[in-house]
Design a protein around this nucleic acid. Structure first.
Lengths: 213, 213
DNA sequence: TGCCATTTGGACCATACAGTCCTATCTTGG
DNA sequence: CCAAGATAGGACTGTATGGTCCAAATGGCA
């Protein structure tokens, strides 16, 4: 990929993270990337939509390298890796002063109902993310209780993190995310064999719960 | 409040839920509400921004009546109420075929960084929501473990629900939300006294966790 | 040298948008 | 019945937007 292309993609990624896709104009991107004009931009991208798709791709690749990679570290215990990954999500938000939030969550909220092309691509992103967690959970299965549902647990983790990042952004307070991250770790720990006997006898105190795991 | 005003607010609420605030034009609202023209609209609202604020207010009032009210039902056990509330959130999404998502979460993702006026109002919404859950948790305190942090737990519940609703919208699959809702109930149950002995000895299996509750 | 991708610069278009202004009718309660 | 608010209809402004088209210059590489 040419330098220019990457430069445009980076500029667009920043702007979209800050303002959203709709509120980022092609002219804004041109300015941010210091291009000479529209023709220069359209030499590299056939439309704003295509730019959006590629930005999303790039964001996911970056996230796969910087975040998801932790989930695959071969020398670390899988559940430990999961904890480190959660810490990494927190660290990423700290980097931007609890602003911007998640590029995937933001785009999802903005485009999911309005633009099918984006919707399916964001769905794919979450699916690849979930799949990484599922693999890890599979690896950790000797430590996990038998009836752990990896599909559900992976979704829960992602949802909790996305929700936490959003609330953190609204409150502009990183400690919101930190608290939820800690609680999320406890929730995962709840699924480990050590606590198995406990779980088995869980009374669901007034929560009307049969266990549907 | 005049009928017309309410009618405009409802029309706008629908459109904003479907497309977001930025992508909803005043003309769209006028059309949806069957007004005669711009002057008619501006007779009731001084700007699009003001309309947005009032829509947010109205959405929260509706949510307070239809959802949050459950948290206050005096004749039902508090933790049972919490479970019913979570069910109500699921039911609300079912109603719209897993589309639209949360009006608060959507607006948050769209506006939090870009528009301080909206940010503080959304923050207030989440705060009022959290405060309702905190009250409930306070009521339930005889059933809860001593070191339950109501502030943190209430935030966790909201974050998990908001994240779940978002993922559900992206996947267009209500079962995502259903699974997370069930898991969330289990997480809450984890904080009850019945399971207290268990919790005390929680080993945090490989999750590097001291308990910071 | 000559080709091709890159870069520059700008004109141009159709559409959309928030918001203003003006005028002329209704409708209704005092 | 009359004033005041509600409704109707439209013209208009200034700005932004995604996208197209064209012409010319620059650069490296075969």
């Amino acid at each position: 990929m040419s330098d220019r292309r990457a430069q445009i993609l980076d500029a667009a990624a920043t702007l979209i993270a800050e303002r959203g896709f709709t509120s980022t104009s092609v002219d804004d991107v041109i300015k941010q990337a210091r291009l000479s004009g529209k023709s220069h931009f359209y030499h590299y991208f056939k439309s704003k939509e295509e730019l959006g798709y590629e930005v999303l791709n790039r964001q996911f690749e970056r996230f796969a390298e910087r975040g998801l990679a932790i989930l695959r570290e071969p020398m670390i215990d899988p559940l430990e890796r999961l904890a480190l990954f959660i810490d990494a999500v927190v660290a990423l938000q700290v980097e931007h002063g609890a602003r911007r939030g998640s590029p995937f969550g933001n785009l999802a909220a903005e485009m999911a109902d309005a633009h099918e092309g984006f919707r399916v691509r964001i769905e794919a992103v979450f699916e690849r993310w979930a799949s990484q967690i599922r693999s890890l959970l599979w690896e950790a299965r000797p430590q996990l209780h038998d009836d752990v549902d990896a599909v559900r647990l992976s979704r829960f983790i992602i949802a909790a993190l996305e929700g936490a990042v959003l609330m953190t952004r609204v409150k502009r307070d990183i400690s919101v995310l930190e608290g939820i991250a800690a609680d999320l770790k406890r929730f995962v720990a709840m699924h480990t064999r050590d606590a198995a006997g406990i779980q088995a006898g869980f009374p669901m105190a007034g929560l009307g719960g049969r266990r549907e795991a």
